[in-house]
């Protein structure tokens, strides 16, 4: 092997360990880990710390596997969009086949290990989550309908349910409320992103609402979904996952979120371009805090229950 051939390989990009880790979408994984942890700790049964740790770990690995498979499938449009063009595959550091192999391997691994560590139902739910994200969302809906993120958001909403079932081995209403919360939160979160990422989805030909129905319709949709989300989020405060702490957090955050959605609705493109989409960006950042604090409040209510402080009882 000559010196020149080594340099050529280096220029093409020899993947580092971190590149394979980046295939697992670590930022999305933090959301998966946190919401799964809340589902797990809010369940009305004790769980051994080691089993709880393993459950969250394998759910996170399953989420990461779905991320790798999504990057394998979407490599063509990731290369076009500014937001995603530096990802490992379009960046030329990892080959598509490697992402596919990693995704499939980790999918099987995480599902089997979760089923062994906890129960079959939890493993099956994780398998369904991966299937839904990769096949239903990535392969089918994402390029076919502007409702892609509405229905596809269900995949991202499942982790708290998987966490709950990992402990209890059965379904209940409470984790479905958490699923509903993430499900309703996803559209305004992504549509705000689509508003200020502007041409990305246009260029890639992804039928986001901004592309198919226009930016005005997207602003209206954000407001409508935020109102529905507020009703659900505050309503959940009166159920068994809620309590005084959750209710206060929900009322304050939903008031702020509604205010943000109203501002987005009242603006037009000229207003937004004048301040480089400051309101839309702020709404997007608030949406991250919104979800984190809602689940933080659910966790607080659950953790305080043994001392008779959490919940309404």
């Amino acid at each position: 092997m000559t010196d020149a051939s080594i340099n050529t390989q280096a220029d093409l990009g020899e993947a580092q360990f971190g590149d394979y880790f980046a295939l697992l979408k670590p930022r999305v994984m933090t959301l998966v880990v946190f919401t799964a942890l809340v589902g797990l700790l809010a369940a009305p049964m004790p769980v051994h710390p080691m089993i709880g740790f393993c459950a969250v770990l394998f759910i996170a690995v399953g989420g990461g596997a779905a991320g790798a498979l999504n990057m394998w499938w979407d490599a063509d449009i990731d290369a076009i969009m500014r937001r995603t063009r530096k990802r490992p595959i379009p960046g030329g550091r990892v080959e598509r086949g490697e992402a596919l192999a990693l995704g499939l391997t980790l999918s099987g691994f995480s599902v089997v290990m979760l089923a062994l560590a906890t129960n079959i139902l939890a493993g099956a739910l994780l398998a369904f989550t991966i299937f839904f994200y990769v096949v239903v969302y990535s392969m089918w809906l994402k390029r076919a309908t502007p409702q892609n993120i509405v229905i596809g958001g269900l995949a991202g909403a499942f982790p708290p349910l998987v966490g709950w079932v990992a402990v209890t081995g059965s379904m209940a209403v409470e984790p479905w409320l958490m699923v509903a919360l993430i499900f309703m939160w996803t559209p305004p979160h992504f549509w705000a992103l689509a508003l200020f990422m502007r041409s990305d989805y246009d260029d890639a030909g992804v039928p986001m609402l901004t592309v198919t129905h226009g930016r005005r319709a997207t602003r209206v949709h954000i407001l409508v979904y935020t109102v529905l989300l507020a009703v659900l989020a505050i309503g959940a405060g009166f159920t068994s996952i809620g309590g005084p702490i959750y209710l206060v957090v929900a009322v304050v955050l939903n008031a702020l979120f509604l205010l943000g959605a109203l501002r987005i609705w009242r603006r037009d493109e000229n207003d937004s371009e004048a301040d480089n989409f400051a309101v839309e960006r702020k709404f997007f950042r608030l949406s991250l805090l919104y979800l984190f604090l809602h689940f933080g409040a659910i966790l607080a209510e659950a953790l305080l229950k043994p001392w008779g402080l959490g919940g309404w009882a």
């Binding site: 010196d3 080594i6 390989q9 280096a10 020899e14 993947a15 580092q16 360990f17 971190g18 394979y20």
Partner: peptide, 21 residues
């Protein structure tokens, strides 16, 4: 120019191998 023992590629491979280990 001779091949250095610790070329960038070697470092990356070392990092990958260590990570897998």
């Amino acid at each position: 120019m001779s091949i250095r023992v610790t070329h960038e590629i070697h470092k990356r491979r070392m990092g990958r191998n260590l990570g897998v280990a």
